[in-house]
Design a protein around this nucleic acid. Structure first.
Lengths: 206, 206
DNA sequence: GTCTATATTGCGATAGAC
DNA sequence: GTCTATCGCAATATAGAC
């Protein structure tokens, strides 16, 4: 059973994600969020104390999926399998959590002023773990000697870009929005660059 | 001879680039720009009519370098040469025009509301040209059949990321700022992924 | 719990002295 | 051409009726 409270909170959170993603934190008006949610403005303040706390909740909503995306790195598996799964998951997040993803990117771009040190530490720890795992593969001779950090940065950038720069991608491709086949092509292209480009040992492609 | 006028304009433009890059358009206060430039606030309005016009000038300052970056695609050359030169130039822009680059990214992320249709058209035309050139190489059998658009998006993302997400990169690597060797490693890693990953014909790496 | 009507503040922009 | 002092407005936040 979903109470009115839960329902309204959900409506506001969704509207806020969209508004913050479109215009950024500072440029977004709480009245616009309320309007998009179909509720009067004071409700926004009633459910979420302030614009900033609402923003923090939107931000928080993307962290869990983001950490989850690294799960392939936390399980046993061949390098090619792990990297493939990771890239596919990252692209899926860009697609399914496009708004929150964009809000997160904008936050990071401006030095993460609203992100708690704990969260930052958590994300960094996962990143360090992934980098170490890649370095391990290199040491075992399972892939070429590339810089693991820069490899990871490239994967982040290339997957995030489908959420962050959707406007540019639409503008260049002429498509209003990307479909299944586009995301499939995006994943294929990046996976190829990583697996072949880094000579990752792989039973499928050699 | 540089007049006071030119000098002050330059000071304000530089300060504005930094402020806009750090906080985004809406969150930036003209008083902060003035303070950073070491000038009183009304001077900002005297030289640049409004906050928005100042912002547009900052934005404009990155377009020329950005279009310039595609020059390898506008000259004859082997695929590997062109791609290598392009990637190196894009990374250099991320480094040398870090602030304006970030402002541009933020603008694009929010749907380019301040960018003139002419500029958008210009950038899209160049992008289309680059994509067509890559497709040409594929048709000639000079590289593997990858999706040229997605390849280009990946290159944009992976090179821009060093400007846009500098905070994250510092945070993960633990370095306050990247040096020559870091940018060199970044370029090497990406070039490898593109050339090897897309099986671009190349006399050097085969 | 919900919403109308209002308080408050902070910032973009300018008038006018030098 | 430059800067001090101030206006006006827009947007966050709330008091208080229902």
């Amino acid at each position: 059973m979903t109470s009115i409270r839960e329902r309204n909170r959900e409506l506001i959170l969704r509207a806020a994600s969209e508004e913050f993603a479109e215009k950024g934190f500072a440029a977004t008006k709480t009245s616009d969020i309320a309007q998009r949610a179909g509720l009067p403005k004071p409700n926004v303040y009633y459910y979420f104390k302030s614009k900033e706390r609402l923003y923090r909740e939107v931000l928080e909503s993307i962290i869990e999926p983001l950490l989850q995306a690294s799960s392939p790195f936390n399980q046993p598996g061949q390098p090619a399998e792990v990297l493939r799964a990771y890239i596919r998951t990252k692209i899926r997040i860009s697609r399914e959590h496009a708004c929150a993803s964009k809000v997160f990117a904008s936050e990071i771009m401006h030095g993460a002023p609203h992100l708690s040190p704990e969260r930052v530490e958590q994300l960094n720890a996962q990143a360090s773990h992934n980098i170490a795992r890649i370095q391990g593969w290199i040491d075992e001779g399972l892939m070429a000697k590339v810089d693991p950090s820069h490899l990871l940065f490239s994967i982040w950038a290339a997957t995030q870009t489908y959420a962050d720069f959707d406007w540019q991608i639409s503008s260049v491709t002429g498509k209003a929005s990307l479909g299944d086949t586009d995301y499939e092509a995006a994943a294929e292209t990046l996976i190829r660059m990583v697996i072949k480009g880094c000579e990752v040992q792989d039973d499928v492609t050699g």
